[in-house]
Design a protein around this nucleic acid. Structure first.
Lengths: 241, 241, 241, 241
DNA sequence: CATGAATGAGTTTTCATTCAT
DNA sequence: CATGAATGAAAACTCATTCAT
């Protein structure tokens, strides 16, 4: 398990090439050339191309995963965890571009890539976010009607496409700016509107009680009307879902 | 120009294989076998592998693009356009899931991009959404602080990842449900918060007028209080930004 | 045998392409395209590519051969025939470039070209020159020590290489100029030196007789010397071999 | 740079096949079979078919070129250089007949020329002869009205065609005999006629002086005539141009 | 640990040729 | 006579992998 320096060298080359040429487009010859050894030398360290890439992926992805899993354990506030995951994930696109696609967009790819044992990484990765959102929903720090998986898909999807856009334009992403923008855009969708609505409900209730008191007091004096309120509430709720 | 049936047959096979194995992973031999002809027969219809794929992509993608571009022209309301694009895009993932990966994602894989003329399609596709969001921002139907490109990335990214999740679990997507869920999740992020506050203000004003009328009528009978309202409104605005 | 117009059209296309791309480089598809028919249509007129080229070569070469064979019969003077053959051959390099190479440089080429029945044309072609030179040697109009085959090789070789040189430089040959230059260069090698030497011998003989007369007249008066002549003759002979 | 034995083996096979089947006609498969390896093994040693042939040609041709260029530098007499080049070139047709066809002739076949870097070799080769002839013209050792390029074309053309003739008849060339024959045939065309005329003039002058002496001695005895000489000279000049 | 040579299956592409219509 | 579709053999080249040294 203790990777020899040569092994790391090879995996680094593999990672770099992977980013540029993709899985099928990265050849053993290219990797060997990058490390200045002959192709057959690679087979001293890895039994096959698949093995090499599998190792490469987990080697470079493990730290990211550890960071995220640690954050999930050590940060209490779900919102803060979400913000951390976004930031860390954006950063990983700069550190190990293309590997993210392998892990995050792993779905039913060709059997070759299927064999790369990437599914596990993907599960570990995405489950952190799913669980965090679920927890946030439970403790009221996030909106109660959130579908954790949908939130997770939206966050990872957004980050990936933002990265793709930068790639396509040949631009570097600014980790802070991009992370903040994404979170800011999503915040109204994530945070519970409860406090505003709550205040309103409290106020409306108070008004109701005042009116009742009013009614009771001036029972014989006059008639009060209060018909519009229910319909208004329904309207607001309709817009929300 | 009018594609012969054989040509369509070949392009269909190409499309199906393309999605599963990617550009480099799809061989002429595999396509030929799918259509039950020999490899060289393909070259009667397409001058090269690149040509075949270019034609395939545009052949199947053009209708989707037409739909979306038409919608953008004929539907006035930016929000409605956004909802249409979401729905149409989700639907295309069911109709031609393979090509979406190609056009929206995979094609950007280094060389493939230029080899197949996918960049244009991608641009046409995504620019509709970008322009729509920009228009919505301009006419006030969407939040004023939206970054159109970020919104676009989030929508396409979310749809792609939701699809990937369904794929991974071997489930079919329900177009309506998925589209609605995605829109619902995003709505608070997209719509301007102004209308809710506005409604409240209107309601409060109405209450105020009713109270005044009440006061005037029962002037000598009793005293009414109405002090808390302004402070509550200020609080709500503060949270929102 | 009476070639249909279509057939001639095809052979003309074949000849033109042959000149540019050579035998192996000329494809049936290219010929078909040149005549604006599909490939299979060519097989209505020729049973195979080899057949097509065989026919093409003889069709275009026959006139040149006829010209040369006629000249050999109708022109009496061997020198004039040689000059005609040079001129006609140079001209053929402009009319049907590359076909000449096929016919003249036909030697043990690949079996495919061997089958093209070009050997006969070659024999007919070159034998004219060989026989003419032999005749010239016999009747004294050409130098007596000429090897007819060597002369033929030199003439055809020279013309071919001059043509190659022009080809390489992308220049057109001027038939008259090139023919004249080649003949002029060869003339001293072809024509018998006899007349000059003859004149000298005549002169020397006359001097001899005069001297004899002189001797006879001044028999007792003086002695005449004439020793240098033999050595000069030897020197000349030495240079000649 | 130092060619491995395997590399030489491959180049030898390539050379042999190249001559018989030409550039387009020689396949990598055929070469591989000749060396008893699989096709792909060739690509360990040469990056492409073109590269293989380029290397092959220069590998085998370089020695011949060196010989000829050395001769041009070390032998002073242009006539001797010409004779050497003829001999060496004839010899090369026996040593590496295949490559001569390539360098001198076949390579010019359209694209092959540039694909294999044969043009340079050809230029170096032929320029030696061209420059030598030019030098001979300048120093008077060759006829003053020679076109160096025409002479070169005639020599190389003659040698090639003589070789073709031997090939066609399945005969071996005798280097000495063929070289001498070719030179002997060309000599009257190459050497300046001046020396013969010169000798004559010397002789005539000597005769003149003898006659004068004779006249002086036998002043009163007789009358000498010497009228024919000028006309003879004019006649000779006329034939020469 | 590394090298160099080789392998074999597979890739895209070309081309002469056939055949039903 | 011509067409369009198809074929099959062969071309050049690629690449992961093996193995003796």
């Amino acid at each position: 398990m203790a990777s020899s320096p040569r092994k790391v060298e090879i995996m680094t080359a593999a990672r770099n090439l992977l980013a540029v040429h993709g899985f099928a487009g990265t050849t053993m010859a290219a990797i060997a050339a990058e490390v200045s050894v002959v192709e057959s030398a690679l087979y001293r360290h890895f039994t096959s191309k698949n093995h090499l890439f599998r190792e490469t992926v987990s080697h470079f992805y493990e730290p990211v995963l550890k960071d995220i899993e640690n954050a999930a354990e050590n940060i209490g506030d779900p919102v803060a965890i979400v913000r951390y995951v976004i930031r860390r994930h954006v950063r990983s696109y700069i550190e190990i571009p293309e590997l993210n696609r392998l892990v995050v967009v792993q779905a039913r790819q060709s059997s070759a890539e299927e064999e790369m044992g990437v599914a596990d990484l993907n599960r570990r990765y995405t489950s952190v976010l799913t669980r965090t959102v679920a927890a946030g929903v439970a403790d009221g720090s996030l909106r109660s009607d959130l579908d954790p998986r949908l939130v997770r898909d939206m966050i990872f999807g957004a980050i990936e496409h933002v990265w793709l856009r930068h790639e396509a334009h040949g631009e570097q992403m600014d980790v802070e700016a991009v992370s903040d923008d994404i979170y800011a855009l999503l915040e109204p969708a994530l945070l519970p509107p409860s406090d505003l609505v709550e205040e309103l409900r409290v106020e409306v209730d108070r008004l109701g009680r005042l009116l009742e008191a009013l009614e009771r007091r001036g029972r014989s004096a006059s008639k009060a009307k209060k018909a519009a309120h229910p319909s208004r509430g329904a309207q607001a709720d309709g817009r929300r879902q």
